[in-house]
Amino acid sequence: MSKNIFKGSVVLNPVPVVLVTSKNKENMDNVFTVAWTGTVCTKPPMLSIAIKPERLSYEYIKETMEFTINLPTKRLTRETDYCGVRSGRDVDKIKEMGFTMKKGKEVCSSYIGECPVNIECRVKSIIPLGTHDLFLAEVLCSHIDERLMDENGKIHFEWGNLIAYSHGEYFPLPKTPIGKFGYSVAKKTLESKPAIAVKKKSEKKTVKNKNEKKKRKKVK
């Protein structure tokens, strides 16, 4: 396999694409698109987003230290792109996109009703990196569309028609998995030889009993 060498750059792809909502101290809402986000900790549950200091959302989030992650669906691809290329200083993106804003449970920022998953976060620290600052935040609660949950309470994100971002383009996520965590080392479930032998013996006995009953009927 022949490969080309590129200068140091982040070529990690694909990545999640999310809509981040925030509210400033004057109670004004804003939304923008983020592709640089990720899970960073389990206990406490934490995630990260990277934001340029010149973004309006940077100001809002730094004021309140709270924000909400909203996972868009395939149907919201155009809206997701729009919120990434337009500034809240120039246009009311929430109004333009017709988003239904819902009041947060644990944070001041609202969440987008049209998105099937919404994650309320509180910023724990901000790390200056260069072009972007890294916001590390604790997840306080999440809103999950009931239609993504089965009768056992399991969340099926694959039912949400979520999208991903790869090298400047949006892609739908498949609904069928190609593997499951741990499947590569899982032991195959096979019947032991003794169990198989007992099963065959039981089957023979059942057949023998049926034949005997038929003979009895004929005799009568």
Rank of each mutant, 00 (worst) to 15 (best):
L56T: 10
G130K: 03
G84L: 02
K95M: 01
P128R: 04
E120I: 02
D145Y: 10
T80G: 04
K23S: 01
F181L: 14
S48T: 15
I144H: 06
R147E: 14
C115G: 10
L19S: 06
I5S: 12
G153H: 06
I178T: 15
K25I: 04
V117I: 10
L19K: 05
N24T: 02
K103Y: 03
R86H: 14
E66I: 01
V10D: 15
K208F: 15
E120C: 01
E120F: 05
V18F: 14
G38L: 04
T64L: 05
S22K: 01
S9P: 01
G153C: 09
E191I: 06
E212S: 14
K200Q: 11
R75P: 00
V123S: 01
C41V: 08
R55D: 10
E151R: 11
K214I: 11
A164Y: 02
T77Y: 03
K208I: 12
I119S: 03
M149Y: 08
P53F: 03
M65T: 03
D90R: 07
T68E: 09
I119Q: 00
Y165H: 07
Y183P: 00
V85R: 03
I178S: 13
I94G: 02
N4A: 14
V207C: 01
N209M: 14
M1D: 10
T39W: 09
N152K: 15
T39S: 15
K199Q: 11
T100D: 14
F67G: 02
P16I: 05
L173Q: 04
